[in-house]
Computed example of a mutant assay.
Amino acid sequence: MKGFALDIAIAPKAERPFPAREILWGSQDGGQNRFPTSRAAWERKYSNDPIPLEKFGAAVANAQERVWIVDEYLLMSDKGKGSPTDRVDRILMWLPLSLAASDIRLLTKQHQEVTEGDLKKFQQRARAISNHVARREKECRIEIRTHLTRECDFIHDRFAIVDDELWHFGGTAGGFHAAVSAASRGWRAADHGAFDFFEEIWNVGERE
């Protein structure tokens, strides 16, 4: 008897809906789509715990391929509003063990206040993510390079690429800044040369 194989049709990979464009302002509620009142702005400015943008944290946690961030002060809290360790712990909350993305790159500048122990937490999280799923397709890699102002001293704003979506921040990436600032999302990164720009400035520095 001749063997036979079932002809099973494999459905093409479903394309996820692309996020709509929107502008988000920082607030103690995790972000909002309009300017805060002056009273709310003052309360946030003097808060010891400015809440980052929940929508950005959710976008990172649900990333399927990549999370690339450019921000010279990403790992530094505002003066008097926590330590670099606090900031690192906040960022790690965006990277759950169930994270599907495998290419995490953080491009910032070197700060003496950020300790080796703080940076090691990212590698510990990468290993934990990789080990969380027994047959993960790709090993999760979290890389941090600190040459931003040393080798690329021409960037003012902050940016992030989450999968194919470009985010732009007027303040600290992720919406940590205590003063009134906004972020925009919903831009296709490829349409604006974001991938090429990031790769160019990333490759200027050596791996830390």
Rank of each mutant, 00 (worst) to 15 (best):
L107H: 10
K109L: 08
Q110R: 14
H111T: 05
H111I: 04
H111N: 08
E113H: 07
V114K: 12
T115I: 11
E116K: 15
G117L: 15
G117V: 13
D118C: 14
D118Y: 04
K120T: 07
K121E: 03
K121F: 01
F122D: 07
F122R: 09
Q123T: 06
Q124K: 13
Q124P: 00
R125W: 11
A126H: 11
R127C: 00
R127F: 13
R127S: 07
I129T: 04
I129G: 02
I129L: 03
S130P: 06
N131M: 06
H132P: 03
H132V: 02
V133T: 14
R135Q: 08
R136F: 06
R136H: 02
E139H: 07
C140H: 07
R141G: 00
E143C: 06
E143K: 10
E143P: 00
I144Q: 05
T146D: 07
T146M: 15
T146S: 09
H147D: 09
H147Q: 05
L148N: 03
R150E: 14
R150Q: 14
E151F: 14
E151I: 10
C152R: 09
D153F: 10
H156N: 09
H156M: 02
D157W: 02
D157N: 12
D157H: 11
I161Q: 05
E165W: 08
W167T: 11
W167E: 05
H168I: 12
H168N: 07
H168Q: 13
F169L: 10
F169G: 10
G171F: 10
T172N: 15
T172A: 15
G174N: 11
G175Q: 04
F176A: 13
F176N: 13
H177M: 14
A179Q: 12
A179H: 11
A182N: 07
A182M: 12
S184H: 06
S184V: 15
S184Y: 06
R185S: 09
R185E: 00
R185C: 15
G186C: 12
A190R: 13
D191V: 02
H192F: 12
G193L: 05
G193E: 08
D196T: 08
F197H: 07
F197Q: 03
E200N: 09
I201K: 01
